[in-house]
């Protein structure tokens, strides 16, 4: 069996909040790359990464934009780690109606990190490229695909039963064999 079929590529941005200096070069580069034409305008409010910072509490958390949610959470969260309290929702990646973060300021459409998808692909996303401190590190790795789940197996089973009922078992098996040979 082809090993490629059994793996998938996972891209990660590893965030080390202890190393962040709060310079926001990541926001600058992100907004430049995603402007049209590329690099023609800079606007950190359009960046798909933002550094949640508070000089008074020594809080510096780079967060990159995740999925859009239509409604806010029922409850907010505030983390305290090593005695340091982080501001409300500071680790949340969603663009949601309760905050104007990760909402395009002109169109009000949600923004989402696309890992600087590009043809040909970049070595790493721009935010990572400009982070001189290693607070952001890009990683790309192959992971094994998971075996089909019980639910998925159940779906296959009922589908095959329906086909066999309509066309007969032999016709279905013959066709499956043929597909296997072609692949």
């Amino acid at each position: 069996m082809n090993p490629e079929m059994n793996t998938k590529t996972v891209q990660e941005i590893l965030v080390d909040v202890d190393k962040c200096t709060g310079c926001r070069a990541c926001e600058m580069a992100c907004s430049a790359f995603h402007s049209n034409p590329k690099f023609s305008s800079i606007n950190p409010a359009k960046a798909r990464i933002r550094v949640v910072s508070n000089e008074l509490t020594d809080e510096y958390v780079p967060v990159f934009a995740g999925n859009h949610t239509k409604s806010g959470c029922d409850g907010r969260h505030v983390y305290t780690i090593d005695g340091r309290t982080y501001s409300e929702c500071s680790f949340c990646r969603a663009s949601c109606p309760t905050r104007d973060y990760f909402i395009e300021p002109d169109s009000h459409l949600p923004l989402k990190c696309d890992m600087c998808e590009s043809t040909p692909p970049l070595k790493q996303p721009w935010c990572v490229e400009v982070c001189g401190e290693g607070a952001l590190v890009y990683s790309k790795r192959e992971v094994k695909r998971e075996e089909p789940s019980a639910a998925a197996l159940g779906q296959i089973e009922s589908g095959l039963q329906a086909l066999m009922k309509q066309h007969g078992m032999e016709a279905v098996i013959a066709r499956l064999k043929q597909i296997g040979r072609e692949k």
Partner: peptide
């Protein structure tokens, strides 16, 4: 608080120089 863009005249060259 500002959420407007600053535009630059020669984008690709300036960005390359900046980097």
């Amino acid at each position: 608080r500002g959420t407007r863009a600053v535009n630059v005249a020669r984008p690709a060259e300036l960005f390359e120089m900046s980097q």
